[in-house]
């Protein structure tokens, strides 16, 4: 999808300093292309008068952004302190054993990907996760496999 210059202008206008618009502009790109393309990064830098490296740095900080085309289902499992103590590692091991897909990988058919992320501010649901941008928890190994098959959907 083409870069929507008008939408970008509207976003930039909301902030007192251009740099504050990095994240919403990256979202704009991700929402239209499915992931943040190198062109989006260049456009954001150009639009805000920033160095490309500055935008790349911000982009790499946030695990919510994708820089390659997404799998059909994307499961992000938190491994920060609370979630690690409640078994996040074991869930990852279970997924790997059952599907052959380890953290940071995508299944061969592009059906799903598994990632680990730092704290997503849902420690009370530990082990917490994000599946296709919906947050949930506590996650169990069985539920993880259901989510990867696209059979999640019941909880918030």
């Amino acid at each position: 999808m083409p870069w929507d210059a008008q939408a970008a202008d509207a976003v930039v206008a909301k902030y007192p300093s251009p740099r504050s618009a990095i994240l919403p502009l990256l979202w704009l790109g991700q929402n239209s292309d499915g992931h943040v393309t190198p062109e989006t990064v260049e456009r954001v830098a150009d639009r805000l008068g920033l160095n490309i490296s500055d935008v790349e740095s911000v982009l790499s900080f946030y695990t919510m952004f994708r820089t390659s085309p997404p799998a059909r289902h994307r499961l992000q499992i938190c491994r920060s302190l609370a979630c690690a103590m409640k078994g996040a590692e074991e869930i990852l091991e279970h997924i790997a054993a059952a599907t052959g897909v380890a953290a940071g990988e995508q299944s061969a058919d592009g059906g799903f990907s598994v990632e680990v992320v730092e704290c997503i501010a849902a420690c009370d649901h530990a082990p917490a996760y994000l599946c296709d941008e919906r947050m949930g928890g506590p996650l169990s190994p069985q539920k993880a496999l259901r989510l990867l098959r696209g059979e999640g959907g019941d909880e918030q």
């Binding site: 160095n51 490296s53 500055d54 790349e56 740095s57 790499s60 900080f61 695990t63």
Partner: peptide, 9 residues
């Protein structure tokens, strides 16, 4: 010039 930046977290 920001030739060097922090990446990841």
């Amino acid at each position: 010039e920001q030739n060097l930046v922090l990446k990841e977290r």
